[in-house]
Amino acid sequence: MAELRPSLNDQKDKIWDIPTVTKVKAFLWRASSEALPVVDLLKIRGMKGDSRCQICGEEGESINHVLFTCTVARQIWALSRFPSPMGGFDAFSVYSNLSYLFNMGKSRILPQQIKRLFPWILWRIWKNRNFFPFEARAFHPLETQQKIEDDAKKLSMAQIVDNERE
């Protein structure tokens, strides 16, 4: 019997409305489509290799693990000014975690400079994950947090310049 899962179409549609660059939107779409090359998905497709997380060494590397529950990801989320869910991120559902982020991104309570961070947090966590095995280097969570702030600030400044030209 097939596992019952919610439709992801509404969530995927929301991605294209996020005020960020196209490469980050495409990355978010791939994350929500379970189309990122993580160990768990590569194994399903028949590839052999180490089944542990490329960053923390924990057994199993899912998209949800890399972006939300890996020890490094949790450190980066804790350092960010973006509010985490009560009780922390869901340990198993990337869908639930992305839904939470999208909802918080629409919050009227959070300042705009905080709301714009979550796509960049996810992007930098993913970039760090790829730097480690391919370039044999990792970024410290504090350094990553600074890059996230810089990315978000650059995009905001570019949007201001674009608005002034119109």
Rank of each mutant, 00 (worst) to 15 (best):
E59I: 09
I55T: 14
K106E: 14
A152G: 02
L122I: 11
F82N: 05
P19L: 07
P37R: 08
S80I: 05
V94L: 13
D17M: 08
N64P: 08
G57I: 04
H65T: 06
I63C: 15
I76A: 06
G57S: 01
C53V: 02
L28F: 12
K23W: 08
Y95K: 01
L101I: 06
P6A: 10
F82H: 04
W77K: 04
S80Y: 06
A158I: 00
A35N: 13
A136Q: 11
I63E: 14
Y100D: 03
P19F: 01
L4C: 08
L8G: 12
I114E: 11
G46D: 01
R5N: 12
I114M: 06
W123F: 12
I44W: 13
I76L: 14
F131C: 05
P111C: 02
L42T: 05
W29C: 05
S51E: 15
M104K: 15
C56M: 04
I55H: 06
G87E: 10
V38G: 08
S80W: 04
R116D: 09
E143V: 15
L42A: 07
N64D: 15
V24A: 09
E3N: 11
S107P: 08
R137M: 05
N9I: 14
A152L: 03
P85H: 06
A2F: 14
V38Q: 07
P85Y: 07
T144D: 06
L122A: 00
R124D: 03
P83I: 00
D162V: 07
E59W: 12
F27H: 05
A2M: 14
E59R: 13
I55Q: 08
F92K: 12
S51I: 11
R124E: 07
T144F: 01
T69M: 08
F82K: 01
K154C: 09
M157F: 06
T71E: 12
I63Y: 05
L155D: 12
R165Y: 05
S32R: 02
H65G: 03
I109C: 05
F89T: 02
I63R: 10
I125W: 09
I121Q: 04
Q75K: 15
F139E: 14
N64T: 13
G87W: 12
Q112W: 12
E149N: 14
I55N: 05
E164P: 00
D40R: 14
Y95R: 07
V72Q: 09
N163R: 03
P6G: 10
K154V: 11
I63G: 15
P141Q: 05
K48N: 13
D10S: 13
C56K: 04
F132Q: 07
W126Q: 03
E143Q: 15
A26W: 05
S156V: 00
G60M: 02
S7W: 11
S51K: 09
T71I: 10
R116F: 01
R116A: 07
L79Y: 08
G49Y: 09
F139R: 10
E34P: 00
A26H: 14
R30Y: 07
M1N: 12
I18Q: 01
F102P: 01
W29S: 06
K23G: 04
S80G: 06
S62A: 11
I148C: 03
G57H: 03
M86A: 14
Q75N: 13
N64M: 07
D40Q: 11
L41T: 03
